[in-house]
Design a protein around this nucleic acid. Structure first.
Lengths: 202, 202
DNA sequence: TGTATTGTACATACCAATTGGTATGCTCCG
DNA sequence: CGGAGCATACCAATTGGTATGTACAATACA
């Protein structure tokens, strides 16, 4: 008997956990309900369909992530490059937890649904892009400061960081442990250092 | 009425195509059979279960990929660094085709099954690792030649390249187009250039 | 060589279980 | 009382998997 009106949030939280563990297709509506301690009656009162849940879960996940990253200590650093490297370090620190906890719901869902569920694909695309965009300001300022003549764009570098992170998650799932992911993010960090530390002719 | 014994191969080829498009869970056994022009009787004659197909498909995919890359022209270059950069360029060239054609079956499947189907997870892990391992020799030789004092290991760099590639696929699926993936691989290429062109103190 | 036997490679028909989704009802608050 | 918030019971469709049948090639044997 849940306190009124918090049920929707509980369903969304449950969806995050279950989908990140089993994937979108493998999680049934009943799975989510059971994990939330509710029934299908409640579920379909709050969501029109399973796809509707996925879109809402993507938004919920993005909002949660946004809260975590914007409140992280590295955000208070004054230097833009330090903030960027701080972001990578922060991501590495998160890898200490269990796999379904540091893994990305958006990357997981979009692989399964990009051809079959356009609405989910678009939601994932949007939130991944927005997260990447949240890095662009720091990257642009760092570039202005440390590598003004470089030819890459801040937008592309921001997307690249997300690619490394998403790929690191894939490898971590394959290996069933976060060690590989940490190594990959170490390489990402080194790339950023190289990119900004030494202004090259090109 | 297919020529004898080629039916299994047709089922595997069909599985590659369908699973890379719809994912593992969303593809039914009937989907694979229909795409192969066969029936379930044939399917379960050749495979014990759907999971069995997935494991076999992973192997089939890896073998196919191995054939493609080992026959690629860049393999004949004499310089190990040129071969490594040639690998990245080759991957970029492949991005011209349709999404399900350049996408990785292993990365797609492992995201959906890493917690629920250990056998599939292990198969994907093994083949991804083997593909990464196929880069280690060139990386190691390039390191000996161009960056002998660097502190990263060839193994970790090989895995990093795979992470970037897998992540690029995720973004490409989200965007529903290969352009992002190409940008990410461009950054990967730049990283490799930086890593080997300029021996740094660290 | 002709024929019975066996095993492979499928097709057809079917099944129990699970799925997303619905219809209906209860219950509590305004 | 009336509707939001939920539970219960149910449904049609789909799922992976099985049981059975059959065409045909290879082998065994006479």
């Amino acid at each position: 008997m849940p306190a009124r009106h918090e049920s929707k949030t509980r369903l969304l939280d449950a969806a995050l956990q279950v989908i990140r563990t089993k994937g979108y297709w493998a999680t049934s509506v009943d799975d989510v309900c059971e994990s939330a301690g509710l029934t299908k009656g409640s579920f379909f009162h709050h969501f029109d369909s399973k796809q509707d849940l996925a879109v809402a879960a993507a938004k919920h996940f993005a909002a949660m992530a946004d809260g975590v990253f914007s409140a992280a200590p590295y955000r208070k650093l004054s230097d833009p490059l330090a903030r960027l490297l701080g972001y990578v370090d922060f991501r590495r620190a998160i890898l200490k937890r269990e796999l379904p906890e540091f893994t990305c719901l958006l990357g997981t869902m979009v692989q399964e649904t990009y051809e079959t569920h356009p609405a989910i694909r678009k939601a994932c695309d949007r939130h991944i892009s927005e997260h990447a965009a949240s890095l662009v300001a720091d990257i642009a300022e760092a570039k202005r400061r440390y590598a003004p003549r470089a030819r890459w764009t801040p937008e592309s570098l921001a997307l690249h960081t997300q690619a490394v992170i998403q790929g690191a998650f894939v490898l971590a799932k394959a290996r069933h442990g976060p060690a590989v992911a940490d190594e990959c993010l170490a390489h990402l960090r080194r790339y950023l250092e190289l990119l900004f530390d030494q202004p090259r002719k090109e």
